[in-house]
Structures are given as structure tokens and as C-alpha cells.
């Protein structure tokens, strides 16, 4: 039985790439209205886990439920469920041939079946929300990375998603642009949107996460509150990962 307040339930997920186990029996529940942040070294399977949650990656074994509904290979069901799952990508993946406004209205019209006016007013409201409404008529390439990522977030919001997945949303950004994106995400967390975030931004995890999940080698090693995982990691692997990420000996050596 799926838990009543579970937005996403993942059970015993296995995914192999060319014989390599990217996911090795992962089970995870994302409660409605909560923010789950997944951390871990690169190659630990955290992005693969996220991409399985809307079947951009098809798991070899296991089961995924979104809002109680099982994700299967059936295309028509899949498209309907995917429309309810917003995804924000590392490289934004905005549509370069469309304006910012059109980026936000296209899927509303062809997937949600909304009229043009309705789609545009929703789009403008969401652009307002991420603080970039004045760029509605621009093309993505005219925007900075941080602006593009905020547009990408607004694009998913315009679909009224039940849940939002973030796949390293700040990893492709210049340092000075990370903050503006994280601030938008923090606001969404406060608004009570269910979020799963794969990130290396520990500050964001501490500020926004209800639950932090540490993955390594295709498994969940540890999960708990940010307090628990960051201050008192139960496993040595979590501790060594956190010490590498939170304390840079090279940086310390340079700055003295």
C-alpha cells in the first residue's frame, strides 16, 4: 500500500548502464509538500535516481509511484503524469528558437490544452514570481545563465506541477549567479512545493531540506534531517564526503 501522504514512492530501483550498477536497490519516499535534497559524490547515482522519477531513465527493476499512480511504460499515461512533474535541468534546456514567453506557453497549450491568452497570463505570473518578467520577449541566448535557469524554473511552474525535480540546477552556473537561482528555489520551498533536489549546494540543503539523502555507489547510505546528516553523520562515507565538500584544504592553504 502506498503511504497516504507520499508524493513519490520509489521501491527497490535497479538501473544498469553497460553492466555498471548506477542504482543498486534504492527505495525512497518523498512526502507531499516536503523538500528532499539528494547529495553524494559524482557517479553515485543521484541524477539517475532523479531521472527515473519521471522515466527519462527507465529502471531495469523496481517500482515508482507518483501521487499513488504507478509509472509504467505506457506512453499515454506517462505523458499525463510527466505533465504533473516539473523538471529543471543542469543545462536549463530552454527552447532556443522560442522567446522566453513562448518557452512558458508552448507546453501549456499543446499538453494542457490551455488557450493562448490563459497560457500567457499564467506564464507572465510565473515569470513575475521568479523576478524576470521584463525578459518575456527575449530569446534564451540573450540571458545570463542565472536568468535562463530562472526561466526554466518558471517554465515548469507554469504547468502547475505536483512536484518539481531539480537536477544539479546550479552546477552549470558562474558562481555569482548561483545565489539568484537558490533564492528562487528557497522561496518555492517556503511556498510548500514538493521538491526533490540533486545538488552540491550544502547551504541550500541546510536551509531548505526537510530531509537529506546521501548516496554513494548506487545506494542510499544515509538519510535524515539536515541537522542529523551534516552534524552527526552516522556513516564514515558520509563523513568523508562532507569533510571534502565543506572543508577545502587547498582553498584554506591559498587563503592562509
Amino acid at each position: 500500500m502506498p503511504a497516504a501522504d507520499a508524493m513519490i514512492e520509489v521501491r527497490d530501483l535497479v538501473k544498469e548502464f553497460n553492466g555498471l550498477r548506477a542504482l543498486d536497490g534504492v527505495s525512497l519516499t518523498v512526502p507531499r509538500g516536503k523538500v528532499v535534497v539528494i547529495i553524494g559524490p559524482s557517479g553515485s547515482g543521484k541524477s539517475t535516481l532523479l531521472r527515473c522519477m519521471n522515466l527519462l531513465e527507465r529502471p531495469d527493476e523496481g517500482e515508482i509511484r507518483v501521487d499513488g499512480e504507478r509509472l509504467t511504460g505506457d506512453e499515454r499515461d506517462l505523458n499525463r503524469i510527466r505533465a504533473d512533474i516539473g523538471m529543471v535541468f543542469q543545462h536549463f534546456n530552454l527552447y532556443p528558437h522560442l522567446t522566453v514567453l513562448e518557452n512558458l506557453t508552448l507546453a501549456q497549450q499543446v499538453v494542457r490544452g490551455r488557450g493562448r491568452q490563459e497560457a500567457e497570463s499564467i506564464a507572465m505570473a510565473q515569470l513575475e514570481r521568479v523576478g524576470i518578467a521584463e525578459k518575456a520577449g527575449s530569446h534564451p541566448r540573450q540571458l545570463s545563465g542565472g536568468q535562463q535557469q530562472r526561466v526554466a524554473i518558471a517554465r515548469t511552474l507554469a504547468m502547475n506541477p505536483k512536484i518539481m525535480l531539480f537536477d544539479e540546477p546550479t552546477s552549470a552556473l558562474d558562481p555569482e549567479m548561483i545565489k539568484e537561482v537558490l533564492e528562487v528555489m528557497l522561496q518555492l520551498a517556503r511556498d510548500g512545493i514538493t521538491m526533490v533536489v540533486v545538488t552540491h549546494e550544502m547551504g541550500f540543503a541546510q536551509a531548505a531540506a526537510d530531509e537529506v539523502v546521501f548516496m554513494d555507489a548506487g545506494r542510499i547510505v544515509e538519510q535524515g534531517t539536515p541537522e542529523g546528516v551534516f552534524k552527526n553523520p552516522a556513516s564514515d562515507r558520509t563523513w568523508s564526503f562532507l569533510s571534502q565538500i565543506l572543508y577545502h584544504p587547498t582553498a584554506a592553504a591559498v587563503t592562509g
Partner: peptide, 11 residues
């Protein structure tokens, strides 16, 4: 990523 973004929106 273009196909992925479009499919992730339910297209």
C-alpha cells in the same frame, strides 16, 4: 536535452 525537456513537460 531538448527532447528531454519537451518529454519531461508531457509532450
Amino acid at each position: 536535452g531538448q527532447m528531454e525537456a519537451a518529454r519531461s513537460q508531457g509532450m
